[in-house]
Simulated scan of single mutants.
Amino acid sequence: MSLAREADPDVEITRLDAASYSAGMLGVTTSPSLFAEDKVVVVDGVEQGPDDLFADVQAYLPAPAPGVVLVLRHGGGVRGKKTLDALRAAKVPEVTCDAVTSDADKTAFVMAELKRAGRRADAGAVRALVDAVGSDLRELAASCAQLVADTTGMIGVEAVERYYGGRIEATGFRVADAAIAGDAGQAVALLRHALATGLDPVPIVAALATKLRTLAKVGATRSKGQGALRELGLAPWQVDRALRELRTWTPEGLAAAIGAVAAADAEVKGEGRDPQFAVERAVLRVAAASRD
């Protein structure tokens, strides 16, 4: 859409939510305007759409409206497969967007967004932003745009915490950071706050697992030199942080913590009766293991 705006600042952009789609909406939004202006129509969450949407897309396909760019965003799954197959058979351009899940990819995304805007952020600020809003790339991009618009110069941790501090405090990675550091009291306090504000236990356990995997990878590779560490696919600041954190960990403690988090992962995904108790127990076990 930004490219469309660059090409024509007056282009009409319409977004449709597939989940609330009604029959005929596509025809209405793609119909020529009074002054024949170009249009961009984006349908989000096609996989959640009703049969009416799929029927309208297939009816539209043989004769698309001139001057209209129709973007269909499908989040995966089998729903709408017949329509997707019809689009592919018609050689409609398809862009595959792999999910960005790792911290390294999110960090790279933030840095690219800021670079495109002609701005920079220090490593701590990038990490804080990823911790706060990194679960959704659109939200992460919007956060970058806000920081660019509302700050000047190098973006530091202070600016990120000013805008997103409350969210940072409630993220799974803050819980994980405290547990990895062996600060059981802080970890549990952050955990209870996160749960009280609606954070699900599953991403908290995932954050613990991610942190421990990073420690395990760096710990197993550090004796092989900097070249091997660079091949891990981690950002330099992640490697540096892991090396610092490993000073309080033994291989036995790390193995115990990984086992505790693996057990909690199964419990919060249905094998246990109380997901919140399971994640709190895992946090305490990780904190204790860091001193073993």
Rank of each mutant, 00 (worst) to 15 (best):
S2H: 14
E6K: 10
D8P: 06
E12S: 10
I13C: 05
R15F: 08
A23L: 12
A23Y: 07
G24K: 10
M25N: 05
V28F: 04
P32C: 02
F35Y: 11
E37A: 15
K39E: 02
V40H: 03
V43D: 02
D44T: 14
V46Q: 00
D52N: 01
L53E: 00
D56G: 02
Q58M: 11
Y60A: 12
Y60E: 06
P62H: 09
P64T: 09
G67M: 03
G67Q: 05
V69W: 13
V71M: 12
G75W: 08
D85R: 09
A89C: 09
V92L: 05
P93D: 11
P93E: 11
T96K: 14
C97D: 04
A99Y: 10
V110F: 06
M111I: 07
E113A: 15
G118C: 02
R119L: 14
R120D: 10
A121P: 01
D122Y: 00
G124P: 08
R127Y: 04
A132Q: 01
V133K: 05
R138T: 13
A142K: 07
A142R: 09
C144V: 15
C144A: 11
C144K: 00
C144P: 02
A149I: 12
A149W: 15
T151Q: 04
T152G: 12
V157A: 12
A159M: 07
A159Y: 06
Y164C: 05
G165R: 00
E169N: 12
T171V: 05
V175Q: 01
A176K: 00
A176M: 02
A178T: 09
A178E: 10
A178V: 06
A181M: 07
G182N: 07
G182W: 04
D183L: 08
L190R: 11
A194P: 03
T197C: 11
V205E: 01
A209S: 15
T214V: 14
L215S: 01
L215A: 04
K217T: 15
K217P: 01
R222Y: 10
K224H: 11
Q226L: 09
G227F: 04
G233N: 06
A235C: 03
R241L: 14
A242F: 01
R244D: 07
E245I: 01
P251K: 09
E252T: 14
A256Y: 13
A262D: 14
A262M: 10
D265F: 08
D265S: 13
K269H: 07
E271P: 00
E271W: 13
R273W: 08
D274I: 06
Q276A: 13
R281K: 09
V283N: 08
V286Y: 00
V286W: 00
A288L: 04
R291T: 06
